[in-house]
């Protein structure tokens, strides 16, 4: 089953995974990412039979995220037909894992997922409230910046175990530093999930993504916040990302993929056109 959360909590069942895979394939999605969100926090061995069933029907690349903790886990998933594996919490626990996987399978197979929280800004001197991420929990006036200042490494922190609301916590790492390190260790792609935006459909975190783009030499995929077709255009044009990931708006068909692609091609953003019937 596929579930989709709002700010990483309250996951709702979104339908049979194979049925969804077929639907997105036919609608012209360019890539699918499957998050096994329960796999990592539980630390359990998961049944990967679904990967094989997905590979049978998909003629586009797909990536599996969640619960890949070692070489054997990665090999299983790749042998079952995934094009890439995405590691998140296990890479934070053991950064060497990135190197181990990249050496064995090539960097192109190794995606590092980063769940990043923008810390709330300090209110500026005139008493204006913060307009950036209202986050609850990880606010820190010591490291938050004034409104209008450009973002720095202290403004974003990496979270881990986000699949489980009860275990989700800061990793103690800064987002920009971690992404730099992950690339040096062999990550071939970064999926940056901006947690403040996740599931709320107010648009991608352009400021954060543009800042990450400056340090990211490998493909960068934006995640979190897509709610309208304009949001996709904005993230390609202003944050210069290589891909834009969304879940809610596609699951609910609020944005049909062929319409979105025609819109983006019309805005001169290069992409594979939707298949003609």
């Amino acid at each position: 089953m596929v579930v989709k959360g709002v700010q990483f909590r309250n996951h709702r069942v979104m339908g049979d995974i194979i049925e969804l895979a077929r639907r997105y394939r036919d609608e012209g999605a360019d890539e699918l990412v499957f998050y096994d969100i329960t796999a990592s926090p539980d630390g359990r061995t998961v049944d990967r039979n679904w990967v094989y069933r997905v590979a049978e029907v998909l003629d586009i690349p797909f990536c599996v995220a969640g619960g890949i903790r070692n070489l054997a886990d990665a090999e299983t998933v790749l042998n079952l037909g995934a094009a890439q594996i995405c590691i998140n919490s296990p890479a934070l626990e053991n950064p060497d894992l990135i190197e181990i996987l990249a050496r064995r399978f090539g960097s192109q197979c190794v995606v590092v997922g980063v769940d990043s929280l923008a810390l709330a800004r300090r209110a500026s001197g005139d008493g204006g409230g913060s307009k950036g991420g209202s986050t609850g929990g990880a606010t820190s006036s010591d490291v938050g910046r004034q409104d209008g200042e450009p973002p720095t490494d202290t403004d974003y922190v990496v979270y881990q175990y986000t699949g489980d609301p009860n275990r989700s916590r800061t990793s103690g790492r800064r987002t920009l530093g971690w992404i730099t390190e992950a690339q040096a260790r062999g990550a071939g792609e970064i999926v940056l999930n901006c947690m403040n935006q996740d599931g709320v459909r107010k648009g991608y975190d352009i400021e954060q993504l543009a800042r990450v783009r400056e340090v990211c030499q490998v493909p960068l995929i934006a995640s979190g916040g897509a709610g309208a077709m304009e949001h996709f255009r904005e993230v390609f044009e202003r944050a210069d990302v290589d891909g834009a990931l969304a879940a809610s708006v596609f699951h609910t068909a609020a944005i049909p993929i062929p319409d979105l692609k025609r819109y983006l091609i019309g805005a001169s953003i290069p992409m594979r056109p939707p298949e003609e019937e």
Binding site: D30, E31, S107, Q108, G188, E189, R213, E214, C216, Q217, V218, P219, L220, D240, D242, G243, M271, R272
Partner: peptide
């Protein structure tokens, strides 16, 4: 040749 605009590896359509 790697550049910010053209990440290497090329991964995509």
């Amino acid at each position: 040749s790697q550049s910010a605009r053209l990440p290497v590896p090329q991964m995509g359509w």
